[in-house]
Design a protein around this nucleic acid. Structure first.
Length: 473
RNA sequence: GCCAGGGUAGUCUAGUCUGGCGAGGCGGCGGACUGCAGAUCCGCUUUAGGAGGGUUCAAAUCCCUCCCCUGGCUCCA
């Protein structure tokens, strides 16, 4: 399996540090507002990666933080007159709700900055002791020049570059960044050996990741906008702290969602919240929409694109329903004809291709091609075969279920359909009666049965080989 | 300015690392099937690669030049 590593700017063979265990940390949101589609994209992408790794028999330990102390949160709380904790709780809840709807599997730990102040203080103390950080009048800073590998992730060069960060007269060097900020009036603050204050942005992730995953781990990810300065600074802090390198083996970054080719962002105001999107579209449509593009490429958001995906997903569900409908009466064959063997070969070949696409840096668009090809293949088989073989249909169904599990769609098939045998019999009885009516050319009554069944989500379809019924999508 | 990533049919998206008949979705049109409905299948749309050079038996893919777009360098998923 190959994974693109931002650190080396190329695909690398994926070999986790401790064989079946994969330790993975993803930068979570700063919780001062509802999440938008861009956030959704990133977390769905990492969810897919996690699911695929699990599918490939890795045990994934997954940590995602919440940044609940930050300038914007403080601003927002002041503006709205809402206590910080109420605000952050509200948006954490909102975020988790959205993720749940999107079918993003939960993290094993969701560390919040506000709950890890002690750890952060200790971390900073070590950095000071080791000579990587200094106390100044504005707070505690990381002295970038001390860390010789600075820039290895984002490719920034300290010498020729005037990395102008937040203007701060108390820094030794403009490239230095804050670890601890002294409190200004009205800001939340905690006691520390250097004075009351609060942790700065980057330190939290280093501290919490190391606390929960250890001094070195496998995957660290987030949106591409975090590469610099956030992740660059995390590396500096963490490797300075542990004295070990590399801190993280694989850095994975997701591309942006764009609107008219511009990055979707709060500041540009061109965003749609996940709540809005999920109100208008089935969560699985949103997921498929996001996974139809490779996770590192920019993804253009458009209403049209989403609508296309509605049809795309419907087609996949139809295929599944076609299989299930035929499966009800299909029997196992004990000898396969040539066509039959070819269909099975095609499916297994495509299944293998599906895996190699996924193995190649989680190439979901390429993997999806295989899914569509299996779809066409099995539909054709159903259309052309006089007596489809149960085993062949099950093979196709297994493939779809595997695909669904990895992509996080077809959820309703896993959650159960709520049908029992008697229900199925009942439908069969109605179908039988209706066909009698049709033979008698009593179409009004036959159509009425079909209409009524449609109302409870059962669709009857008359095919040349007889009537089949499906659950409606 | 520095760094990173792009430009593929009507449209969206793969393939570029590792050169070898350019793939898939959606849309549109036509056909098969059909009491109607629905689903599905088949065919067409389909000699598409930003521009120009070069290397090669062979270039979307490698090299050079140019044009255009986006992102990071201040908070960001």
């Amino acid at each position: 399996m190959k994974v693109y590593n931002t650190l080396t700017r190329r695909k690398e063979e994926f070999i986790p540090l401790e064989k079946p265990l994969v330790k993975m940390y993803v930068c979570g949101p700063t919780v001062y507002d509802h999440a938008h589609l861009g956030h959704g994209r990133t977390y769905v992408a990492f969810d897919l990666i996690r699911r695929y790794l699990e599918h490939r028999n890795y045990i994934v330990r997954f940590v995602m933080n919440f940044t609940d102390i930050d300038d914007k949160i403080i601003d927002r709380s002041k503006r709205e007159g809402v206590p910080i904790e109420d605000l952050t709780n509200k948006y954490i809840r909102s975020f988790l709700e959205d993720m749940e709807k999107l079918g993003v599997k939960g993290a094993h730990v969701y560390p919040r900055v506000s709950e890890h102040i002690e750890d952060i203080i200790h971390f900073i103390e070590v950095l000071i002791k080791k000579g990587y950080a200094y106390v100044s009048r504005g707070g505690v800073y990381f002295h970038v020049k001390k860390f010789k590998d600075y820039g290895k992730l984002s490719n920034v060069k300290l010498e020729e570059e005037k990395i102008h960060r937040v203007k701060d007269p108390y820094k030794k060097d403009p490239a230095d960044f804050a670890l601890w900020k002294f409190a200004k009036p009205g800001e939340p603050s905690w006691d520390s050996p250097w004075g009351r204050g609060r942790p700065a942005w980057h330190i939290e992730c280093s501290t919490m990741a190391i606390k929960y995953l250890g001094e070195c781990f496998d995957i660290h990810g987030g949106g591409s906008d975090l590469i610099f300065p956030h992740h660059e600074n995390e590396i500096a802090q963490s490797e300075a702290y542990t004295g070990k390198s590399p801190w993280v083996k694989y850095w994975i970054h997701t591309g942006f969602v764009t609107v008219n080719e511009e990055k979707m962002s709060k500041s540009l105001g061109n965003y749609v919240t996940l709540k809005e999107v999920l109100k208008r579209y089935d969560p699985e449509v949103v997921r498929l929409f996001l996974l139809q593009r490779h996770y590192r490429s920019p993804l253009e958001y458009s209403e049209e694109g989403l609508k296309d995906t509605v049809n795309t997903l419907e087609r996949l569900y139809n295929t599944l329903e076609n299989i299930d409908a035929i499966l009800r009466d299909a029997e196992v064959k004990y000898k396969l004809e040539k066509v039959e063997r070819e269909v099975q070969n095609t499916i297994t070949d495509l299944w293998a291709k599906f895996y190699s696409a996924m193995d190649d840096d989680f190439n979901t668009p390429e993997a999806l091609k295989c899914v569509f090809e299996v779809s066409t293949c099995v539909n054709r088989y159903i259309t052309e075969s006089n007596r489809p073989n149960r085993s062949t249909l099950l093979l196709a169904r297994d493939f779809f279920m595997t695909f669904g599990e990895i992509f996080g769609i077809f959820r309703r098939y896993y959650e159960g359909t709520g049908e029992d045998e008697r229900f199925k019999h009942l439908v069969d009885i109605l179908v039988h009666i209706r066909n009698k009516l049709r033979r008698e050319r009593n179409y009004p009554l036959a159509d009425e049965i079909r209409e009524e069944l449609k109302k409870i989500g059962i669709q009857l379809e008359d095919t040349p080989k007889g009537t089949i019924w499906k659950r409606m999508v």
